[in-house]
Design a protein around this nucleic acid. Structure first.
Ligand SMILES: [Mn+2]
Ligand SMILES: [Mn+2]
Ligand SMILES: [Mn+2]
Ligand SMILES: [Mn+2]
Lengths: 220, 220
DNA sequence: AAAATAAATTAGGTTAAACTAAAAAATAAT
DNA sequence: ATTATTTTTTAGTTTAACCTAATTTATTTT
């Protein structure tokens, strides 16, 4: 069973929206995620249904199948390994990798991805802190919460970002927030949900609710 | 000006057949090279003509333009750099790289290819001995002749292969011929054109005319 | 429960890239 | 110089992946 590039992109979007997000995924959600029109999505859902990577009843909704999950995870695995390669070996910044990985993830070669994995020393997380599925599709996920949901005085370590857009990542670079940083919540403002944190025991940082909710933390 | 993957493949084939080969390139030649039907080639030639990467007058023939050469060389550059990456970094054998490089060459990112070039230490030749064009499309080509055309007692160094098929490359591996090997022609058989050579001053090797004509040598 | 609104699908069209079969042009053979 | 052959192009289809506009189904509101 092989999927086209477009099919892989759709399936990946469906996986992200369903398995990692809410249970029910709408045609409009997928269209927004993939930046395409709902009519095109309907068309593709029928095709993915025929290929049995999703279970699809029109007007009712869809459910990704075990086969679909497995294939989606293989694409995600490739995407994240390439991101690690770009950052670790080619010195890309973490905000420069997504677009290129979006292309590289579709290269078809089992040997390539296994060799790449070995070459990178079997990394467990990508530059944005997202877990890299192994060759069998197993994902070791860490329990993590949004910084925005932490209590005052609670401390932890930044382990991932929810939003991987260049604008957001460059903002984090600018203020000095990074994956691996140890943080402690100093204050939370009731009024607008903004937070004040201490980074690496030396630098205090204010951030909006919007920013804080896109930073994922492993609490101690 | 951007080309699709199919257009890049056609243009690359046209470049190889015209610039590196004979002057006049037929529709059938291209069809054979790309493993497609002549009718499909005619269609594509019209499109490539409109994009001005070739000059095309139907029934008369085609000529690749300077713009076409430049674009073809960029694709060839990417192809060969990826081949070096696969062999040097991911331990691919030289007969395993072509198919994967055929896909990787179409990844679009200027940053990627410049960084890759730097990471590989600006290699000048790919694993098959073919020169890698630089970012400006300049190719440093060495004067090389087919082993088959060497005289008895003449010596030199294997610098490239004409045929990159896995079958041929694996045969060379088996008999112990490799790029960089110093050789000397011991004998040439008039009857069938086969040759006997001495490799690295220790091992003698017999090879058919067919094999010898696909090995390129830099004569001392 | 009917009407209004929102969401999803279908109908019909476009573009890229392939194909087969038929026609046209160029080349080779008599 | 015709005729025959080969090469190339055109005509007409197919498939994948998109689109807009129209229609159908589901959901909400009155
Ligand atoms: Mn992609
Ligand atoms: Mn990532
Ligand atoms: Mn290619
Ligand atoms: Mn090569």
């Amino acid at each position: 069973m092989e999927l086209t590039t477009a099919e892989e992109n759709y399936l990946k979007a469906i996986y992200h929206l369903s398995v990692e997000g809410k249970k029910s995924v709408s045609t409009n959600d997928i269209a927004a995620e993939i930046r395409t029109k709902p009519a095109s999505v309907s068309d593709m859902l029928r095709k993915l249904g025929e290929k049995e990577v999703i279970q699809y009843r029109k007007y009712y909704g869809l459910q990704i199948t075990p086969l679909g999950i497995q294939l989606a995870l293989q694409t995600i695995r490739k995407h994240r390994l390439w991101e690690v390669f770009l950052v670790d070996k080619l010195n890309f910044a973490w905000d420069e990798v997504h677009e290129v990985a979006e292309q590289l993830e579709h290269i078809q070669s089992l040997l390539l991805i296994e060799r790449l994995d070995a070459y990178l020393n079997y990394p467990k997380f990508d530059p944005h802190g997202d877990p890299i599925p192994d060759a069998f599709g197993d994902v070791r996920s860490r329990p993590r919460i949004a910084l925005q949901e932490m209590e005052i005085d609670q401390s932890g370590q930044i382990v991932a970002v929810k939003d991987s857009s260049p604008a957001f990542l460059r903002y984090l670079d600018k203020v000095g927030a990074y994956i691996g940083a140890r943080i402690k919540v100093l204050d939370k403002v009731e009024f607008d949900g903004s937070v004040e944190i201490l980074v690496d025991q030396k630098k205090t940082l204010f951030m909006s609710k919007d920013v804080a909710s896109n930073i994922l933390v492993l609490t101690a």
